[in-house]
């Protein structure tokens, strides 16, 4: 089973590097976002709670999270064509456990997302972030865990989709609000209660905390900080739940309906 996961994950990576425009595009987009939005908002927008943080700095974890989120979710778009007229057809008739199909795709996509995040993480020291080795490790763990959950979510939704256009439409309904309401662009403070409740159940909010907190706090304090631990727990639960549902989805072969159903 490990062999199968490895084969499928490797395929994702090879495909990624074989399409240079994808490599460039996926890295340029968040950088452009960060620089333009960061400097634009930074000039005119300053929350009362953000006295000692520049907006560029505040926005940095949000951009990191966005890169992870978008890369994770949109990597599953290939499932749609792959399933009906691509390699996935053969994976489905192969004697492999169905969970290996999910894990292969998800871990491959997660690796691609992590490579992109690492490039952006290289900018961290220039902003004055010094998370240290252990802190960096915690940050990476948070990113990996969140990425697994979001890729599995994308998998779940893409599986039954007929067209990539439909997938784009559905995902933009989910994705943009999820990112906007995560605290990536504005802090989670002094908000109306309804908005605050939406933000607090949003998995992206917790993913963002997992990214932001290791940049500011010592690793040891983090591990005894209940906010961090709760976010870690939510991310873990989210990842396992989405992976499990995705597996169930694949496992359920298209079953025939009872012959009498709906017959007049």
């Amino acid at each position: 089973m490990i062999g199968v996961i490895h084969v499928l994950a490797k395929r994702e990576l090879v495909r990624f590097f074989r399409q240079p425009h994808r490599v460039v595009g996926s890295l340029a987009q968040p950088l452009i976002f960060w620089v333009l939005l960061g400097s634009g908002f930074g000039a005119s927008f300053r929350a009362p709670t953000m006295t000692d943080v520049s907006y560029m700095e505040y926005f940095y974890p949000g951009i990191l999270m966005m890169l992870m989120l978008f890369s994770s979710i949109f990597s599953t778009i290939t499932l749609i064509e792959d399933r009906n007229q691509g390699l996935l057809q053969e994976v489905l008739v192969a004697p492999v456990p169905r969970i290996a199909i999910v894990l292969g795709k998800v871990s491959g996509a997660m690796s691609v997302a992590m490579l992109q995040c690492l490039v952006l993480l290289a900018a961290a020291p220039f902003l004055g972030f010094q998370p240290g080795f252990l802190g960096g490790l915690l940050l990476l763990l948070g990113l990996i865990l969140s990425s697994l959950g979001f890729t599995a979510l994308g998998f779940l939704i893409a599986w039954r989709m007929e067209s990539t256009a439909g997938y784009h439409a559905v995902m933009s309904i989910f994705l943009m609000p999820m990112w906007l309401l995560s605290g990536a662009i504005f802090p989670l403070e002094n908000l109306p209660t309804w908005l605050w409740s939406v933000m607090i159940i949003n998995p992206a909010t917790h993913a963002l905390k997992l990214v932001r907190m290791p940049l500011y706090e010592e690793p040891m304090t983090l591990l005894s900080d209940s906010t961090f631990l709760v976010s870690l727990g939510v991310a873990l639960f989210w990842a396992i739940a989405c992976l499990w549902l995705a597996m169930k989805r694949v496992e359920r072969a298209d079953c025939g309906a009872p012959l009498t159903q709906g017959v007049e």
Binding site: R11, V14, R15, R18, Q19, N84, Q85, G86, L87, Q89
Partner: peptide, 8 residues
Amino acid sequence: HPALDKHL
């Protein structure tokens, strides 16, 4: 439809 990855 060919079950091949054409990028590979």
